[in-house]
């Protein structure tokens, strides 16, 4: 009998995991400002966990969400409150807080049973605003719009102190998330999700309970995002409603789509690409350019970012993962590639 992963090339996975954990050591050896690079990678890692969940929802189930920053906020705030005010240990909070975010996922999943497409996208956007408001209104616990400081994470007596520790914690969880998400995708659940995405009517006709699976999709996606939120709160040590902007939600969907919706690796790649580009490459590029010409940094950076994104979409509409697949096919067929029609 054929195993689950038989049709895939798995031998690179351990190498990749090893590379992920060795990378900080290389970075530290190479540059004294490694903490900055690690920090950017840490953000990418946290967002990866979220976008993997978002990909399950939007890429696999076909349910648009423009409010995922809200789930991040719920996870972050619940963990901050649970750990710092209620006194629950962090090890427990990483299980409870995502569940809270997941339950909110069910709340927003409920309208999703009736509302479709772009209507749903904008309902979730509204959900994002409502959650932000709710956090401000609960100012006794959350500190309102002034934000709140969060303690450091402690796992089994080991305190996660700095970017170095954060990196290992975050990327361990990223790897776990990728594995879980890939298992979900190839399970019965994942196939049901994809059936719903491809055609709701056909899925229903094949005996898939639409309500159940849509709610489940929102729940799982909320779990991932809430989990990312927990990591976010305890690694940045300060959270405020300004963090969880509507623009962040839009960026999340951009990350998923630029990676290529409907592939877990795509979400990871897309997140890495956007976060690195915004926080690392463009600022460094600007620094390099600033030696020669005087320019106002802010809008110039945004312009470059938008411009690269637009070019990317026009020339690679299938995303990074699609690009990777094309390259792979190209190498496999080499030198017998079908010639491109010159129209």
């Amino acid at each position: 009998m054929k195993g689950r992963y038989d049709d895939e090339n798995l031998k690179w996975i351990p190498v990749l995991i090893l590379a992920i954990f060795l990378f900080p050591f290389i970075l530290k050896g190479a540059t004294s400002s490694y903490k900055y690079y690690l920090y950017v990678l840490n953000i990418a890692g946290i967002y990866m966990i979220l976008t993997i969940g978002l990909d399950l929802l939007s890429g696999f189930t076909g349910l648009m969400s423009l409010g995922h920053a809200a789930f991040l906020a719920i996870g972050a705030y619940s963990s901050a409150i649970l750990v710092d005010q209620v006194g629950i240990p962090f090890e427990l909070s990483i299980f409870i807080s995502p569940v809270i975010a997941g339950l909110f996922g069910l709340v927003i999943g409920f309208p999703a049973l009736r509302i479709e497409g772009m209507y749903l996208g904008l309902t979730t956007m509204g959900f994002g605003f409502i959650v932000k408001r709710l956090i401000i209104a609960l100012r006794e616990w959350t500190g309102g719009s002034a934000g709140m400081p969060v303690s450091k994470a402690t796992i089994f007596g080991f305190t996660i102190n700095n970017d170095w520790d954060n990196y290992f914690m975050i990327y361990s969880f990223v790897i776990i998330s990728v594995i879980i998400a890939r298992r979900i995708v190839i399970s019965k659940l994942g196939r049901a999700f994809m059936a719903i995405r491809d055609s709701e009517q056909a899925a229903q006709a094949s005996g898939i309970n639409l309500a159940k699976y849509k709610m489940l999709s929102f729940f799982i996606s909320g779990l991932f995002a809430g989990f990312a939120g927990v990591l976010f709160a305890h690694t940045s040590h300060f959270i405020s409603t300004d963090h969880f902007d509507i623009l962040l939600s839009i960026y999340f969907i951009v990350m998923v789509l630029i990676g290529g919706a409907g592939s877990i690796y795509g979400a990871v790649l897309g997140t890495l690409f956007i976060v690195l580009m915004e926080n690392l490459f463009i600022p460094l590029f600007k620094d390099g350019l600033a030696k020669y010409i005087h320019l106002e940094a802010g809008d110039f950076q945004a312009f470059i970012f938008g411009f690269i994104m637009l070019l990317f979409i026009i020339f690679q509409p299938l995303g990074l993962y699609g690009m990777w697949l094309k390259i792979r096919i190209y190498w496999k067929l080499f030198p017998f590639n079908p010639r491109r029609r010159s129209t």
């Binding site: 839009i250 809008d299 110039f300 945004a302 312009f303 938008g306 411009f307 637009l310 979409i313």
Partner: peptide, 11 residues
């Protein structure tokens, strides 16, 4: 593409 257009126009 429209999202990136928005960023471009604004900046």
């Amino acid at each position: 593409a429209t999202i990136s257009l928005a960023i471009i126009l604004r900046s």
